[in-house]
């Protein structure tokens, strides 16, 4: 059997969504961003909303998200994505607007924008990558860095008496009346990837149904920042991160 004979539609078991561009991703091998990007692109394609979806990219590792998913994008200043999304959603109420943000962006510098967009119940989806570290700037302590975790600015491990506690911002967002769906997912195993994709779809469906703000947190790895192999990082996340950030739906209305 030749290669050409194998590459036939009836033999196809998996394909890349055309919404993912052919631009090589700059993410480190083992990073969760690539998987989450792919899931978002797949859901947009499956729901047929490519023409009306506008993404707001953050400052952080995902700053170039617009190079990988073939939709209209705006690149925000650090932490301000929910403010941009607010205006886009209000001015284009028939569009489907989402932000894609990391923990430093969403839970430190952009805390006010995050909370107030959620509290207003903006019809947007917020995809939140929580890897407990500032990846792009080289592995500094994030608001979500767990207790004892070593980073370049907490070299002895995060001391909560000195540096405060890991910020469980998704829990905080559940008490706001404007949020309709807050969930915490991961993408380190086939089973979690399937669940995460369902959560992304639900967030987009809520947005189109104008139910309010949906927040999907992805507890993620940053193996480069954590100084681990991809496999070690997945294990470490399951053992340590999930204790501080247990997976599952926090709110679903």
């Amino acid at each position: 059997m030749t290669l050409q004979e194998i590459i036939q539609p009836e033999n196809k078991v998996y394909g890349k969504t055309p919404l993912l561009t052919d631009t090589p991703m700059h993410y480190c091998p083992g990073c969760s961003h690539g998987v989450v990007h792919k899931l978002i692109a797949e859901v947009i394609e499956e729901m047929g909303i490519q023409d009306i979806t506008i993404g707001i990219a953050p400052v952080g590792c995902a700053v170039f998200a617009y190079n990988y998913i073939d939709i209209d994008w705006q690149e925000a200043a650090h932490g301000r994505a929910p403010a941009l999304a607010t205006a886009v959603n209000r001015l284009l109420p028939e569009s489907c607007v989402f932000t894609y943000q990391g923990d430093g962006d969403l839970a430190a510098i952009g805390t006010a924008e995050t909370i107030h967009a959620c509290n207003r119940g903006e019809n947007i989806a917020i995809f939140f990558i929580n890897n407990g570290i500032y990846g792009m700037t080289g592995g500094q302590m994030a608001p979500t860095t767990i207790e004892g975790m070593v980073t370049s600015t907490s070299p002895e491990g995060r001391d909560v008496m000195l540096e405060g506690y890991p910020l469980k911002i998704s829990n905080l967002l559940t008490i706001l009346d404007g949020t309709c769906y807050v969930t915490r997912q991961a993408v380190h195993t086939p089973a979690t990837v399937v669940r995460a994709k369902k959560a992304i779809r639900k967030a987009f469906e809520n947005t189109l149904a104008k139910k309010g703000t949906s927040v999907v947190e992805f507890v993620s790895t940053c193996n480069s920042g954590w100084k681990m192999s991809p496999h070690q990082a997945n294990q470490w996340m399951a053992e340590h991160m999930f204790k501080a950030y247990p997976l599952g739906d926090l709110k679903d209305q």
Binding site: L84, A87, A112
Partner: peptide, 17 residues
């Protein structure tokens, strides 16, 4: 908006459209 910071970034978002 919740602040002038948010206001100007809402303006950015709207202007982008």
């Amino acid at each position: 908006a919740e602040s002038e910071t948010a206001s100007i970034n809402m303006v950015y978002g709207g202007a982008g459209c």
